[in-house]
Design a binder for these strands. Structure first.
Lengths: 298, 298
DNA sequence: ATCGAGCATAAGTTCAGCTTAGGTATCTCG
DNA sequence: CGAGATACCTAAGCTGAACTTATGCTCGAT
């Protein structure tokens, strides 16, 4: 019988790219991971890895084995969820990951609801970059996470993670009274066009928020001149208010804008979702969090 | 992560009924099995077993966990099959189980075919009672097996075993020239009725062949007086030939009947199939055996 | 009553799987 | 182009999980 722990290592290698990264994530030494993968390969009787420069890559056989590993681990997750729901009551710790603006808004409301309904549950919140959520879930560092994506920046599909939609909110263009121009229409190009030469305020490079801003401007026909890179939407609004440029903010951040800001609703959306390990959706603590998060967004 | 080896033990306990039987089948001590199941139960956080007299039975939670174990192990079997097909060539040992009359006829023909096509494959044949085939497959003592069932004796469905049909053959009533009566019809009752008071030759008590004979006679309206219990159809034909009674034989055994035997085709069928572990159907050696067996039965 | 079957627990043993240590090949950068 | 960093592998030693052995307890059959 194939050892599922070794299949798990193979899967992590596929996702993380190097043995060293797998070892680091699972707090082993690289040697241990290498040895276990060697054993797996010997048992398989087929080459699963091959060296490529100083790293290793999976052979086709290795990749198809990862697909089986995904299926097996998903089913095990389902079994764990069922056992958890068989235990009476919801309790224990629940590790929650969230993107920063989710932390401000959805999370406190959801946690208040959750604490009231399930006092034995100990939520542990942790801000995390959306791109690292999948790794965190697989490694067991997180049980559930709030994630989002934008138009123009589709999330890459990931079979190891299940997601339930939470919220779809329009993005707003934040400018100020001085720079505001009367728009001639309400397509994205018409709304953004007047700011083709303006300085822009975006999220930090490498984030999906940044990519969304760039691609939205490109779709409107220009390359934005980015002056400010801040992840905090309140800061972005503050900069826009004092005429430092134009920026994108989600509806969630528009509740109490600073004086002088002008907000224009855009035909551009951000979708927030709750993510968890594939098969984990029936886990009572996760299901309770999902329910609380949905209640929190109304 | 749940340990799949422990889930495997739980599944075997569900199938075999006692910890001692599981231990015996897997060549462990009962103590080892008991300890591992205790650990599984502790990890699960739910009662999986409860004592019932001097044995243990699975709780509902335990049984539902077994269902997950079935799914996981089936997927692992699929992975193993795929790895085997990725290895170039078909070789290694293939453990074949067969019921006795299959051993006479189908198996030699199939093995000749198999040896010609795949000389590196080492078939290992073993006669085995059909009732024990499922256990043997799960325990890895067998890779593939010829099994059969009869009308009136349906095989109990088993999710851990996949089967492909091989042959459906009519059963024959074997009598001799002296005792033969002219039948007035061709329903089972009409054909068997004249022998209601005759002595009968059946397979040994506890086999499906025995159960079939009894139930067929009951369906024809009488309780057979069983004088001889032999599993070997040649022997049964020999007894019938010398006027020792009436018996049932499958078409497969009617090729060269002894002198004096009268064979009457009955509206009663025996179905032969090839069985293997669920998920194992794509294993190249198993697929090759299935193909050879189908070729052998024409 | 007695005995065997079945399971659990305690204690001792063994080996799979880990770390440490050291070596090789590859990539990067001054 | 040489030095250092990175990534992996192998050898050797160590540790704990999982096994066996030994023992006791309970239940059911004779």
């Amino acid at each position: 019988m194939l050892d599922v722990r070794r299949l798990y290592l193979l899967r992590e290698l596929d996702r993380r790219g190097t043995i060293a990264a797998v070892a680091e994530a699972l707090t082993f030494t690289a040697s241990a991971v290498s040895q276990q993968l060697s054993v797996l390969e010997r048992e398989a009787g087929v080459a699963l890895l091959e060296r490529s420069g100083r790293r290793v890559i999976l052979t086709p056989a290795g990749r198809s084995l990862v697909a089986h590993a995904d299926a097996v681990l998903e089913r095990l997750e389902l079994a764990v969820a069922e056992l958890a729901s068989a235990r009476e009551g919801i309790g224990g710790s629940l590790r929650i990951g969230t993107f920063p603006s989710g932390g401000h808004t959805i999370v406190p409301a959801a946690l208040a609801e959750l604490a009231q309904r399930h006092p034995a549950l100990e939520p542990m919140v942790q801000e995390i970059d959306s791109a690292r959520v999948s790794d965190g879930l697989r490694a067991g560092e997180l049980d559930v996470a709030l994630v989002h994506d934008y138009d123009f920046v589709p999330a890459s599909p990931d079979t190891t993670v299940d997601e339930v939609p939470l919220l779809e909110e329009p993005m707003y263009l934040a400018t100020n009274t001085a720079t505001k121009t009367t728009s001639r229409g309400n397509t994205l190009a018409e709304l953004l066009g007047p700011y083709a030469e303006a300085p822009w305020i975006t999220a930090r490079e490498g984030t999906t928020g940044h990519a969304m801003a760039v691609r939205a401007c490109q779709a409107a026909g220009f390359q934005p001149r980015i002056h400010h890179q801040v992840n905090d939407f309140r800061t972005a609004l503050g900069l826009a208010a004092i005429g430092q440029g134009a920026g994108f903010v989600p509806e969630m951040a528009t509740a109490h804008p600073p004086a002088g800001v002008v907000l224009t609703k855009l035909p551009l959306f951000r979708r927030s979702r709750v993510a968890f390990r594939a098969g984990g959706g029936t886990h009572p603590a996760i299901a309770a969090f999902v329910a609380a998060a949905r209640a929190a967004v109304g």
